[in-house]
């Protein structure tokens, strides 16, 4: 008697049990569960992707594909740092030193330029004096007396104003443009030049009248504005530069500075 036959009765009882069937909404519920599961999976995937995304450092440090990348990058960074400290900083210091030395040379150069300018001015002055000396004696005497009266009786500034009037009439403007940054001494020379010009135009009657009138005016002004009375020195006044000369001086100085700077830059470049 086999085991199957021995328990035949109990087997039949078990087989006769009613088969439990799934409910009618079983499939619908199953599909709902599947949809929910899919949504959860999708969200989990998105969250995981966002977490994995991270920042640059996180991605870099968690790079499992190339683990040697981190020490390699660290080593190169250290090498760059050492290179910067040893070479680049030293170069900057050297440049600074050379720049300071160049500055000194430029200063000396500007001084040289100024001396050259002075030489040029003095040369011009000497030329003018020579031209005055070559003039006839009468005229030179007039010039001397005139210059004396100019120096003794009038202020330099007033004299300059008068000179401006002369400039419009005569060729003094040429002289002025040739020598833009002349000093007070030049002013004196200009006045004498004017007198020279005046002396040249003695033969002309209108010019003579004008000169006479102006001399009168100057003497009147000299009386009223005596340097002793006014308490001002003619020379100190005459040292004040007018607008034109000031501008020209600034322009020249700018030029000098630029050239000096260019020299410095050239030396730095080398």
């Amino acid at each position: 008697m086999s085991d199957e036959e021995k328990y035949l009765e109990i087997r039949e009882k078990l087989k006769s049990l009613e088969t439990i069937k799934a409910s009618s909404n079983f499939t619908n519920n199953l599909h709902l569960k599947i949809v929910e599961e899919e949504a959860l999976r999708r969200n989990a995937h998105i969250k995981k992707y966002d977490d994995e995304k991270g920042g640059f450092l996180r991605n870099f440090l968690s790079n499992k594909q190339y683990p040697w990348l981190i020490p390699a990058v660290g080593f190169t960074m250290v090498i760059f740092f050492v290179f910067y400290v040893t070479y680049v900083n030293v170069d900057i210091e050297q440049l600074e030193k050379s720049g300071s030395s160049n500055g000194l040379t430029d200063e000396s150069k500007t001084a040289d330029n100024n001396s050259g300018l002075k030489n040029y001015e003095s040369k011009n002055l000497s030329d003018l004096k020579n031209s005055i000396d070559n003039l006839p004696k009468e005229n030179s005497e007039n010039f001397k007396s005139q210059s004396y009266t100019d120096q003794g009786n009038f202020k330099g500034r007033e004299l300059k104003n008068e000179n401006k009037n002369y400039q419009s009439k005569q060729d003094l403007s040429l002289i002025e443009t040739d020598k833009p940054n002349v000093t007070s001494a030049d002013n004196k020379v200009y006045t004498s030049e004017k007198t020279v010009e005046k002396s040249k135009s003695v033969n002309e009657p209108d010019a003579e009248d004008n000169t006479k009138e102006k001399d009168m005016k100057l003497t009147e002004l000299g009386k009223s504005k005596n340097p002793v009375e006014s308490g001002t020195d003619v020379r100190s006044e005459s040292f004040l530069p007018d607008d034109k000369t000031e501008k020209i001086m600034h322009m020249k100085l700018d030029k000098i500075d630029k050239t000096g700077l260019e020299n410095i830059l050239d030396k730095i470049g080398r």
Partner: peptide, 20 residues
């Protein structure tokens, strides 16, 4: 398989809802 499976699990657990 739904009926067979529900029947199998029901016989194991004895509860219809749980088996489903």
């Amino acid at each position: 398989y739904k009926d067979r499976l529900v029947n199998f699990i029901f016989r194991y657990t004895g509860n219809k809802e749980e088996s489903e």
